[in-house]
Write a protein that binds this DNA or RNA. Structure first.
Lengths: 189, 189
DNA sequence: CATATCATGTAACCGGTTACATGATTCC
DNA sequence: GGAATCATGTAACCGGTTACATGATATG
């Protein structure tokens, strides 16, 4: 499940240029599968060589020519295979949570700003997902996409609620701990 | 925030060998910050060279000598700096969710097994976290660690509840979709 | 008898990330 | 005038992952 598979995936939604794929990947996939955009163009070239996509070059003025890719039957099969072979691993890499584990070593204002930024981010995603769910677009979505939206809403709301209701307590406790340690240090020294 | 910083972090909890750190990182950190174990030993050597840790070699019989590392003041400062400089990014890389997005392309039994395995995994973590929260160990934990446990419980319970209550519906819908497509293909063909 | 635990490490590979390069048009 | 959008790419680096190597003791 690498950059190439992700490109194949986006192409199941319709023909697209590298730029289109990049936007799609940044806007809707980045929440659960991030890749770096510069890897997309080489990946598409390789896919073309392997016959998993075909490409059509559209001349442009003042910009590089647009190259529109289409999924081939082989490409669709390759994606199906990649999905069937995937172990479905769900991996979190969170510097935020590492920071929380070592909260006593970081500046309290830093903790607060990171947590509140995360809460705001989640609330933004939540609002966007709800808007989508209540729009006409949802009727054309697949069962999997609707499931994913429901999953995202459930998890994001739980997370942002927890953050909003516990951030201040955490900051208070961290600051109390710090002053307690400082005063016991003063006694010793 | 790389392997070296994570090692420094574990050493704030007390002196430890590479093996100890590895276990700690696999058992309690892996849920939110995964690194590969083989990177730990070179990382510790580098940290020793930089003076961020000191090491004591303890002779062993029938095994490689044990090397116990201790955090220096410089190491503690370096970790503080790493935390202060971190943007606290929370990143999810989930093949599971990609599979859900393209649910129509994957075998339904596969979807089901991946989702149920995830639910079971979450329930295991949840039970372990609750057991910790209700044990004596929690009294020695820092505010940050208690916050992290509360966060984990809130998020994991929301996720497993959603999965348990929606998996069957998803599988049904995917199968209905498949047979609908198959019959419309039959009409065409 | 086989597997898990303890305990450390090396070497090579490969893929992702970063930084760079170009340039017209449109919006604030 | 500056930033954002459209549109594609290359080159180098670096770090993480995989696979491998060793071997005793305890547990089932």
């Amino acid at each position: 499940m690498d950059t190439k598979d992700l490109c194949l995936g986006v192409l199941t939604l319709g023909d697209a240029s590298g730029y289109d794929i990049r936007k799609q990947l940044e806007q809707t996939f980045a929440h659960f599968m991030e890749i770096s955009s510069s890897g997309i163009y080489p990946a598409l070239k390789q896919l073309a060589l392997q016959g998993l996509v075909t490409s059509t070059t559209i001349p442009q003025q003042g910009k590089p020519n647009k190259i529109v890719y289409s999924l081939t039957d082989g490409g669709r099969r390759a994606l199906g295979l990649a999905l069937a072979e995937s172990d479905g691993r769900h991996k979190v890499q969170s510097e935020m949570l590492v920071m929380m584990f070592y909260a006593g070593l970081a500046p309290p204002e830093k903790l607060k700003s990171v947590l509140l930024a995360r809460a705001a981010e989640l609330e933004g995603y939540t609002a966007a997902t709800k808007a989508w769910r209540d729009s006409d677009a949802v009727d054309q979505a697949t069962p999997g996409q609707r499931f994913l939206a429901g999953y995202a809403l459930a998890v994001m709301e739980a997370e942002s609620k927890f953050l909003r209701s516990h951030v201040d307590d955490l900051i208070d406790e961290v600051e109390q701990d710090k002053s307690a340690i400082a005063s016991s240090d003063a006694k010793k020294g």
